[in-house]
Simulated assay, not measured.
Amino acid sequence: MKNQYRVHAALFVVALIYAANYSLSKDVMPRYMGPFGIVTLRILGALLFFTLAKRVAAPGDQIRGRADTVRSILCGICGIGVNQLLFFAGLNWTSPISASLLQTIAPIVVVLASAVLLHEKITGSRLLGILVGAGGAAALILSRPAQAAIYPHATLGNLCILANATVFGLYLVLVQPLMRKYHAFTVLARIFLVGALIAVPVGWRDALAADYAHFPVKIWAEIIYMIVFLTIMAYLLNNWALKFASPALLGVYIYLQPVLAVLIAVALGKDALTWDKAGQAVLIFVGVWLVSRKPKGAPAPVAPLEVVQD
């Protein structure tokens, strides 16, 4: 029972960490640092941590074979490099609430990617969910935001967030075999290395151009938050919780993240919840719920991945 409470606590903290980032990032970019500079600092910080952790926890573990090497490179591209560049570019241009809602499209992408890569069957219920969720996402992307003067490039930002959710959903499908075969730190160190090779050449100018000497304490705290909590702690807590959490429980916390993001954004005055956004959110949530339902007669899901060893 105590372990069950710890799982819920871990998943809630992860959802809260991600939800808060939608608003806190707005304080940093673009005034103090460009979005790609944030990505550079975040990936380099995580790369350093996971490389050292891998040396301590699994010094002899190595990704071997051409197939696994190619898969790890694709994971680094989709899950770290391209994913983070698209996310922070999109969040820089759109509102926190729109970004958080579009992020929930990822489970739909997982189902589509699983159908193509793993030949999993798409049922009628899931097909309906894909169409409903896509309709909600399309309405959100094409709608004119209430704060059009604040976010003049909101449509482009929403498209970047949708692309981010798409490549991240593909990453979730690609990374599963690696997480089952190797230690989590081995996989994370490799994919963050690949991500750094993509993101650093794009973002190093933003990172160097920042006037660090004149950063207020609040901005330093938010940058540290994005490196330590958003990247390192969120990955560790999520990986630990996956050993014990059921798919249904994970689905609940997928819905919780945008709810928390809305509450935080409204409380901090970073965004406003309108009836249009509420309706679009309902369409997306219903679509994700339909897609996440287990088909009748489907075999029991694979045991949760043991991605972090005790």
Rank of each mutant, 00 (worst) to 15 (best):
I38E: 00
V39Q: 01
V39F: 00
T40P: 00
L41V: 01
I43M: 00
G45N: 00
G45F: 02
L47M: 11
L48Y: 03
F50C: 07
T51P: 01
T51Q: 05
L52N: 04
K54M: 10
K54Y: 04
V56G: 06
V56I: 12
A57K: 12
A58D: 04
P59T: 05
P59W: 02
D61Q: 11
D61V: 14
D61H: 10
Q62T: 10
R66A: 12
R66D: 08
A67K: 11
D68A: 14
V70G: 06
R71M: 10
S72M: 10
S72L: 05
L74D: 14
C75E: 06
G76E: 02
G76W: 01
I77F: 08
I77G: 01
C78F: 14
C78E: 03
G79Y: 06
G81T: 08
Q84P: 01
L85K: 04
L85Q: 10
L85Y: 09
A89N: 13
A89P: 09
G90P: 12
G90D: 12
L91D: 02
T94H: 14
T94F: 13
T94I: 13
T94L: 13
S95P: 10
Q103K: 13
T104F: 07
I105T: 15
I108N: 02
I108D: 04
I108A: 09
V109H: 04
V109Q: 02
V110K: 11
V110Y: 08
L112C: 08
A113L: 01
S114W: 03
L117H: 00
L117M: 09
L117R: 01
L118A: 03
H119V: 08
H119W: 08
H119C: 05
K121T: 13
K121F: 05
I122K: 14
I122H: 13
I122C: 08
T123K: 01
G124N: 10
R126N: 04
L127Q: 09
L128M: 13
L128Q: 07
G129Y: 06
G129Q: 09
L131T: 07
L131N: 03
G133D: 03
G136F: 00
A137Q: 02
A138Q: 02
L140V: 02
I141E: 11
I141R: 09
I141H: 10
I141S: 11
L142Q: 06
L142A: 10
S143H: 12
R144G: 06
R144E: 14
P145V: 04
P145F: 04
Q147W: 09
A148K: 15
A148I: 15
A148S: 15
A149H: 11
A149I: 08
I150L: 14
I150P: 03
Y151Q: 11
Y151M: 02
H153K: 12
A154I: 14
A154D: 15
T155F: 07
T155G: 07
L156T: 15
G157R: 13
G157H: 13
N158E: 03
C160S: 11
L162S: 03
N164T: 07
T166G: 01
V167Q: 00
F168L: 15
F168E: 07
G169Q: 11
G169I: 11
L170C: 06
L170F: 03
Y171I: 07
